[in-house]
Design a protein around this nucleic acid. Structure first.
Lengths: 250, 250
DNA sequence: GTTTTTAATTATCGATTGATCACAAATTGA
DNA sequence: TCAATTTGTGATCAATCGATAATTAAAAAC
């Protein structure tokens, strides 16, 4: 067994056989302020875990950082602590409250608002790191995903369906709460757009270079097709429960 | 260090302290025909890897099978061979050629065909095992995913858009090939429905118990909204390239 | 009933993994 | 200049992992 060294990625096994002995290269030791080094580790960890998943090994991460593996543990007590920090860094402060105002700005058409919102949303979170870490953590069952989807539902989808009703003189959610099926329509729009990111970053297949125009087409189809369905759903709901209603606004 | 035994999941560490010594329980050794045991291993491997991912350990898999860990390697030379077999078992022969005929059966409305198709499709592949293994292998970069998406595009989405054109007396794909944006509309429908499965099996959040009615609503919105967009896209395409066309039918 | 075949187990190996600790070296403060 | 502080490294540990080989025992063949 080869004695393990803390050397930065310099493999002990002699791969370059017959070559010059390839001196281990003493390498000037770089000393950084604590906060700076910590940020370096977190950022590289995001890239690394996004690529290989959370089972990625601390030694490989250290190699990419060009530091020794024990150094990681001088900044994060356990690997799990580092992963937790990665979650925070990826999810936190990528949410833009302005998006919610944008969706309600009735000086613009609903179609315009939807395309603008999803273009901005896609620009902010449709990245290799975000999408893959989101899916990886979803598979792990981390509840940060569930909270995030709740955010999407309450802050985005309900708002979209409220605006869609308003644009077609349909009852407000206070008068008739959103039905499950109605919210699913909004999930359909959201899914059709998020699926673009999944194809690109998870399956890594070719997708149109111009994502924004795809979003525009998707939103257009939604605005064309959803209102009639919503009207039908509300009509059925009304007929079933005349007078004051008690369905779930959820 | 505790000497490792091949015992089926019977942990060597004494967890039940203070209890009766808990005899190791000799356990009648069960002998099965080779093909039968092999199938058992594959099926449990599908469940197991779907749950924890492909980094799941052979010892844990063996424990669930109530067999010893080396036995797995008497049926599959390496773990990777077992995983490859899992791919085959999951993806192979879950494709129903009848689906393609169904989509082209013009004795039924397009909406009826779309809902019927996606209900059948969802029934066949929207399972915990299929969806999670598909995403896990996608993250790993296995090219079986890319091939499958190509199948979806060529056998399903192009067929859907061809039928949608026919239903609205629009040019055939031979006359005017599908544009990128037009196919993306179909990907939108597909994504909106597959996203249901992702929410359920990957993020594991609550979704409506009646998936079929969600599919119906999604398809209805698509049939309502997509044709106008397609007509516009084809109109623009026509105006740009009059006479014989040379765009990509992909 | 005896022999042959082969499914299954026991025991263990070599490599890998997260984590620890003593020590080295760079920076800071006096 | 020199001691104190703090970043970073080398060496190594205990547990875990995929995989192998010798052995046991159940079923099939005779």
């Amino acid at each position: 067994m080869v004695p393990e060294t803390g050397n930065r990625g310099v493999d002990a096994t002699d791969e370059n056989t017959g070559q010059t002995p390839q001196v281990p290269e003493p390498r000037k030791r770089k000393r950084l302020p604590r906060s700076e080094r910590e940020q370096m580790i977190v950022e590289e960890a995001i890239r690394f875990f996004a690529e290989v998943g959370f089972e990625g090994q601390t030694r490989e991460l250290a190699r990419r950082l060009d530091i020794t593996q024990p150094l990681i543990f001088r900044y994060f007590p356990t690997k799990e602590d580092l992963i937790e920090r990665v979650y925070q860094e990826v999810y936190l402060s990528r949410w833009n409250p302005w998006w919610e105002e944008l969706l309600e700005d009735r000086s613009q058409s609903l179609l315009g608002r939807l395309t603008d919102f999803y273009k901005a949303y896609a620009k902010a979170i449709f990245t290799y790191e975000w999408v893959r870490i989101f899916v990886y953590s979803g598979l792990k069952g981390v509840n940060i995903n569930k909270r995030y989807l709740g955010l999407i539902r309450d802050r985005v989808l309900k708002r979209i369906m409220g605006e869609l009703r308003a644009a077609h003189d349909l009852p407000t959610p206070e008068e008739i709460p959103f039905s499950e099926a109605e919210l699913e329509l909004a999930w359909g729009l959201h899914g059709s757009i998020f699926y673009i990111a999944i194809r690109k970053w998870i399956y890594e297949v070719e997708i149109p270079s111009d994502i924004e125009s795809v979003i525009a087409v998707e939103a257009e189809s939604f605005v064309n097709g959803a209102p009639k369905v919503v009207a039908r759903l509300i009509g059925e709901q009304k007929r079933r429960t005349p007078g004051p209603h008690a369905s779930t606004g959820r």
